[in-house]
């Protein structure tokens, strides 16, 4: 019997061969994946940052959400209202003042067209001035909702900015205990950008509270320090629908 055992192939050698085979297959799959990844043309994704959308009066200190009305729409409104005013201006002198000297029809038509031209010019001037204002505001540091915003009300722009960042990071759990869970917390951001928070009112739902904590942790990575060099402190309310400033 010893002869047969001696002639058996070495099992250790076979294990080594098998290992080599597995490593080779692994390497092949790895290389294949790498090649596929290299050939895969990834199109650049563009994100629209709602916080940075243009605002009518960024320097006034109002938040982006409160006063967000693009310049184009405001001018459009002006254009729409103009025809209402212009006939008044034209109509009143005609109605109240003494009857003017009778002019030929061609003269009155010329006057009317002149007045219309004046009004149009005025509208265009207004339009240009409002557009220039918008450009000036944008060019300056005072972009509403940006961490560099300088509103008159201390920290009002920055609060909107923080709120939007928290909203982006907050994912409400699919299931929660109560009907309307709510977490009230006081968020404090130091002038150096250190973020701290205190939960003032818990939702008594572990998952919901954890989601709020996670949102703050996620937002922590993107949040910038307050622009005015002062500590920022603001209460926020987290609900399943989203985040609100208190």
């Amino acid at each position: 019997m010893s002869r047969t055992l001696k002639n058996n192939p070495r099992f250790g050698l076979m294990v080594a061969s098998s290992l080599l085979l597995h490593l080779t297959i692994y390497a092949l799959i790895y290389q294949y994946n790498k090649l596929q990844r290299a050939n895969y043309s990834q199109e650049q994704t563009y994100y629209v940052d709602l916080v940075n959308l243009p605002v009518a009066r960024p320097r006034s200190g109002a938040s982006a959400s409160e006063k967000a009305s693009p310049p184009a729409s405001s001018t459009a409104r002006q254009v729409v209202t103009l025809p209402d005013k212009s006939p008044k201006k034209i109509a009143t002198p005609l109605a109240t003042k003494k009857p003017p000297k009778v002019k030929p029809a061609s003269e009155t038509g010329e006057e009317l067209s002149k007045q219309m031209a004046k009004l149009q010019k005025r509208v265009e001037e207004k339009h240009t001035s409002s557009a220039l204002d918008t450009i000036r505001n944008k060019a300056g540091s005072g972009r509403t909702g940006m961490p560099g915003g300088k509103g008159d009300q201390a920290g009002s722009d920055y609060a909107s900015y923080v709120k939007s960042r928290l909203e982006d990071a907050f994912y409400s759990p699919m299931v929660y205990k109560g009907k309307k869970p709510e977490v009230k917390l006081l968020l404090r951001i130091s002038r150096y950008g250190k973020i701290d928070f205190r939960i003032e009112q818990s939702s008594r739902d572990i998952l919901f509270d954890a989601a709020v904590r996670r949102a703050i942790d996620m937002a922590r990575e993107n949040l910038k320090a307050p622009p005015d060099g002062e500590d920022f402190e603001h209460p926020f309310v987290f609900r399943p629908e989203g985040v609100k400033k208190k």
Binding site: S17, S18, H22
Partner: peptide, 20 residues
């Protein structure tokens, strides 16, 4: 992975043994 490595080792081993 351990099962797979040992199985293939046995397959090689048996192939040689039975073939010879």
């Amino acid at each position: 992975i351990f099962f797979s490595v040992v199985s293939w080792a046995i397959i090689f081993y048996k192939f040689l043994q039975v073939h010879r």
